[in-house]
Nucleic acid binder design. Sequence first.
DNA 1: GCGGGGAATCTCACGCTGCA
DNA 2: TGCAGCGTGAGATTCCCCGC
Length: 235
Amino acid sequence: MENGEIDYLEVVSEGAETEFFEYLNTRGVLKHLADTYPLERKKQEVPLWLYIASDISLRLHGMQSFHGYPLVIRSGGLLNALGPEVGKKTVHPKTGQVTIQCPGFNHKNKYDRQTTCDQDFLRKTARATEADKLVGWFNTEMPRLLEQRGLFDPEGIFIGDASYIFVPDNENYKGSDVLLFDEHNHPVEKEKLSPSQLRRCRYRRCYKWVELIHTNSSGEFFFFVAMHFGAREVS
DNA sequence: GCGGGGAATCTCACGCTGCA
DNA sequence: TGCAGCGTGAGATTCCCCGC
């Protein structure tokens, strides 16, 4: 650290992450999510609950790439929470060297496992999941989970928050829209603008991102209850 | 650095065969 | 008839290369 030889700096507390996943695991939340996850496999070797937990862990670490999975497993608290049958992390008392041992869920690997499952398993499982079904699953199971655990506040405050995600003008962005925006990036209707106003506007390709957030009047918590990502129309 | 995708490899279900 | 052993093929996972 003193010499500036830092390969990676982690901001998520390992202990907090362990507690978080222990909660999800022992309360049956992970199992419930896996049982309802919208992907049917004729054969399943690596369990879906591990995929879901791993994906959540990646997001907690702000890791956008599956390539970062070994790093997240090494530095995060997921492994501690899932127990030695999934993997264990030992720290050498003198050198501080971290050693990972994961038995895995099959014997297809040639190399010693440094992660609970191969990062490509995560990538291909994500790719095999249909986007519409995934959003539908989230919008169904998240409110159900919150209700089952009595987490909805009696005040019943829900906030709909919408914003636009701009992307390059490329039709390959499936389900995107091209809309007219003013100089403040607010969507406008061409018919309602004067010629001078119209000159300051431009068409931009975008997605609409809508979140339904549950909170209470003192703002003590925020639960993301439902979401929509896609074209303008929200049903 | 990253995701896409193909090849390699492993697992397991299923059907067939032989035997008690 | 029931069971074990074997071969086969589909599917899942791992390894690896390629292009952006």
